[in-house]
Write a protein that binds this DNA or RNA. Sequence first.
DNA 1: TCAAAAGTGTTACTAATACACCCATGT
DNA 2: ACATGGGTGTATTAGTAACACTTTTGA
Lengths: 249, 249
Amino acid sequence: MMEPSEPRDTLLIELVENGDRFLPHLSIDCVVFGFHASQLKVLLLKLTNADLYALPGGYIYQEEDTDQAGARILAERTGLTRIYLEQFGVFGRHDRTNNRVHQQIFESFGIPFDPDFWMWKRFVSIGYYALVDYDQVTPTPDLFSDRCDWHDVGTLPPLLFDHARLVEKALETLRLMLDHKLVGFNLLPEMFTMAELQGVYETILNRKFQRTNFQRKMLSLGILERVQKKYGGGSHKAPYLYRFDTGKA
Amino acid sequence: MMEPSEPRDTLLIELVENGDRFLPHLSIDCVVFGFHASQLKVLLLKLTNADLYALPGGYIYQEEDTDQAGARILAERTGLTRIYLEQFGVFGRHDRTNNRVHQQIFESFGIPFDPDFWMWKRFVSIGYYALVDYDQVTPTPDLFSDRCDWHDVGTLPPLLFDHARLVEKALETLRLMLDHKLVGFNLLPEMFTMAELQGVYETILNRKFQRTNFQRKMLSLGILERVQKKYGGGSHKAPYLYRFDTGKA
DNA sequence: TCAAAAGTGTTACTAATACACCCATGT
DNA sequence: ACATGGGTGTATTAGTAACACTTTTGA
């Protein structure tokens, strides 16, 4: 996890000089999904001094499991641990990275571009997708970015390299998973209403469900526990809150 | 592709000395599925001088796409090009390889074991699964194996490292794919009978289908072209042969 | 008592399954 | 004629979808 007290330049120099602490040529990119205002969101970094966005990513320490590395990278960008995180593919075209972009980014930090520098080599990237509770996330830029924000999956800004393809593939995988591995709960707070859950499914799968049938189906799975009422302040009945019962799943 | 005229030792020395032509710490392992005698088969290498089996695998050249590398490795072990090949996961635990096994294998070739040698470092492996026509394959051992044979997926011999887990995961993925990405044809010759196709589905999914319903369903997909009769020599009607119509898929 | 949430019941439609039965055809 | 391949029809069942209607409950 990044120490907030350390100055940014120190961290940058450390990263530059300690390339041998990482597995070379191998990176991780994360597609972090969140759900807010009836929209599916993705967490993107805005590269410093460029109108270009990138997925949160990083490198794998020599003695670190790839899954651990994914979790670590995600903790750094979101402040969250114990995130639902799953691998969805490897992106290994030898020309997927592009040194013209590298050069621009690096020189914007006042560092002369060296094509032999480890970070500008060819990289094979392992794609992970994460499902998180939107409200729990503290978006945190990394060393090469000045912003970290949520974006609607429908309207993405220009993305670095093949990152648009990664988002696409992650979304395909998420849609597949949603059907038969009750994964949608991870996008909601610990307690949620049935209407919110329905919203998640409708947004991701891009179709409407009948309220009554949806409710019947979800409850019949026997993995939702009704907890209490949600007092929303309206002049009407408060909806029930449910919790995903991990014990029964 | 390996030159059959080159002596084995020359190839071995070349591989040992040219480790820098490959991406370090990154390997590919292939789960090659075939179908024969109503059984789903996997292609395994028997390691020289050890009662241990391994998946066909290899390394990625510096300027090579990972998908290309997979196809190349498969061509070397099967003699086939244009194979149906798909990635199914990355195996990246830092302790997944094991130098005691490495040592045994290497010393069996009379080469002293050097723990700093590139091949004995930690490796992250990309898993690919392939679907091939059993009869077209020419199983070919690699430098570290003395045999290359088909094995029933149900009864596998002891496997190297986490290769048993790779087979398991590949099979899971294959079962998922079979449902909604008509992939089964790749396990059969170009022309096949409906009964053979049904056999493939029944074996992989481990359940029986009603002949009539199976036939109706397959034909209703509109991607099978009936070609001719199969003269099997029996005293009965010859079954039709079908071809997978790629144009309509 | 109003408004929204939650639950029940019923009908219609669709897809999967099981099975009976007939036709085709090579020896 | 016989054995096997290939095809049709149809009853049953399970799962989805659509919708009307009732009940609950907070302000």
